[in-house]
Design a protein around this nucleic acid. Sequence first.
DNA 1: CAAGATTGACACGTCAATCTTG
DNA 2: CAAGATTGACGTGTCAATCTTG
Lengths: 157, 157
Amino acid sequence: LTEEQGTAWFNYRRMSNLVDGELERQLMRDSGMPNAYYAILTMLTLQPEHRLLLKEMARRLGFSQSRLSHALARMEEAGWLLRERCETNRRSTYAVLTDAGRVAQAAAAPGHVAAVRETLLDALTDEQVRQLGAICAAVLAHLAARAQTSPGEPHPG
Amino acid sequence: LTEEQGTAWFNYRRMSNLVDGELERQLMRDSGMPNAYYAILTMLTLQPEHRLLLKEMARRLGFSQSRLSHALARMEEAGWLLRERCETNRRSTYAVLTDAGRVAQAAAAPGHVAAVRETLLDALTDEQVRQLGAICAAVLAHLAARAQTSPGEPHPG
DNA sequence: CAAGATTGACACGTCAATCTTG
DNA sequence: CAAGATTGACGTGTCAATCTTG
């Protein structure tokens, strides 16, 4: 591990801990939901029929299936969404946003977006925002490629 | 939130979830410790006398005090370190690495470093590694400045 | 048997309350 | 009272085992 790799890694860890903690606290305090729930609600908001297959949602968010399953169970209990078995392939399941879920997302969004800006984006130049996007995209592509070629491990989740 | 800001943020969240999960699993599987414990052990390894004030350690790692305290309690039970009251200022406490802790860190390090490389660094060009380091440094400086000027919130931890 | 999803036990992290020292 | 640190209760996420469907 070179000098620059080491500092990049160390700084990434520290920043990640601080940023994640800050935003988690903000959402919990102002909207009573953890970051993961907000991500799920927002993801559903952006879908055509406000519905999405669980498997696809887990993939897009980078969640394990059991993490998603636990979260959905708690959110369904809160009345923010419900689950529907897929008719064509009965092994799959849809998550469907309810009106209450849409309202909760809309109520949480402004404060959270502001916090993201104040915590992360305001610290960066436009160029750095672009760079960060490219870096994350490269890592995601890298991981997706690795997942394709190495079916080594049993199911994680 | 502009288009580029949105994708940067979304990709960051997804990448963060995947990378953190992957490395957490690797350490847990191969060395029986979570990422946070490894970070603490490594931090102590790098100190002059293998000792560091808790407050300073929390700051450097981006941990809350209670998170650090719980982790240290569990690690002390495992025999990896011990806590010593500071004599000059008896409100402060040192964490001191034990031989067992040094051994555990040394055993975990190679596999973890390899995983960091395979998961994150291999996906990036040297230029991007530099950019990532600069981006994280900028965010950390930003947050440190904000913490200075706004003593608004009570103690978080 | 594999894929998608769920469940239960357990570990980690958070908040709030508490203790001790300056 | 503030700072540093600890503790307990509780929520979230992980792993392993299980269930159902193709």
